[in-house]
């Protein structure tokens, strides 16, 4: 049952890492990471803060673009090139195909993010000569990876029924919304003036939307003296949240994709 998933995933990775558009995005990201230290010449502490902020931002932004571009074309390309027919005429269930494609995307993403994180660590070490800060620094890309996996699941879910271009904006929009809504929701909940109905509605939206803001944990890493309490249990919690959300999206995607006439 898992062998076809693994094969499809492996093939997807092979294809993904050869897609020129992804490689160009990756190259730009890496290039920015390398030149980032040259951008900020502030006081020692500011420099570290700004440097960390920018580098993590670059990784996150690049990963998000890669995650979306990588996944929105995945299923439509298979259909357009008719490769999906050969695969589906073999004893492969559609859910296996979808899950295989998803894991392929996530694996490719993992490879690309690992590369960027290595560049981050190397550049940071070159610049700061401070190895002690590196384990902390790596936490952010790890959480970004969960975030991007969730984003990829969103995109692959949509790709079972909308065109790539629409999907690009849909997934991108949802990423913005999912990143924005949590702090907005917080503001709403804290505000005394908000009517109860609006709060309930916000609660509803907050539950439905994938909460991408959960994974934006860069702030305490960028700024000295900040810390998330119960850090590991928080990470565990948001990871479990992400995995459940991804599972839900994949199951929903399977239901749609199974009825889809390709």
């Amino acid at each position: 049952m898992f062998k076809p998933i693994a094969s499809i995933a492996a093939t997807t990775v092979g294809e993904a890492i050869r897609r020129k558009v992804l490689l160009i995005i990756l190259l730009i990201g890496v290039l920015f990471l390398v030149v980032a230290p040259g951008l900020g010449m502030l006081s020692a502490r500011s420099e570290t803060t700004v440097l960390r902020g920018m580098m993590l931002g670059i990784i996150q932004l690049t990963s998000a673009v890669i995650a979306i571009v990588l996944t929105v074309y995945m299923i439509p390309n298979e259909i357009e090139r008719r490769t999906i027919y050969t695969i589906l005429s073999k004893p492969v269930q559609r859910w296996q195909f979808l899950v295989g494609k998803y894991f392929g995307a996530v694996s490719a993403l993992l490879m690309m993010m690992t590369l960027m994180t290595s560049v981050l660590v190397f550049t940071f070490w070159l610049q700061q000569r401070d190895a002690s800060a590196i384990p902390d620094l790596i936490k952010a890309p790890v959480m970004y990876f969960v975030q991007m996996s969730l984003l990829a699941a969103v995109a692959i879910f949509f790709s079972t029924f909308v065109s790539p271009l629409v999907n690009f904006f849909l997934s991108g929009g949802l990423y913005l919304l999912g990143s924005l809504f949590a702090p907005f929701f917080q503001t709403l909940q804290e505000s005394q003036g908000t009517p109860q109905a609006a709060k309930i509605f916000a609660q509803l939206v907050n539950t439905i939307l994938p909460n991408f803001a959960n994974y934006n944990i860069q702030n305490p890493i960028i700024n000295p003296g900040q810390q998330i309490q119960n850090e590991s249990s928080y990470y565990l919690q948001v990871t479990v949240y992400g995995v459940l959300y991804i599972a839900g999206l994949l199951v929903a995607g399977t239901i749609v994709f199974d009825r889809r006439e390709v």
Binding site: G14, E15, Y85, T86
Partner: peptide, 26 residues
Amino acid sequence: SYVPERPYYYEHMTGLELLKFYASLF
């Protein structure tokens, strides 16, 4: 088995790899 009209196969694979991939689905 099925060979679609004007088929396209994953271009990055060699002929052997392609067979290996499809065989793995069985």
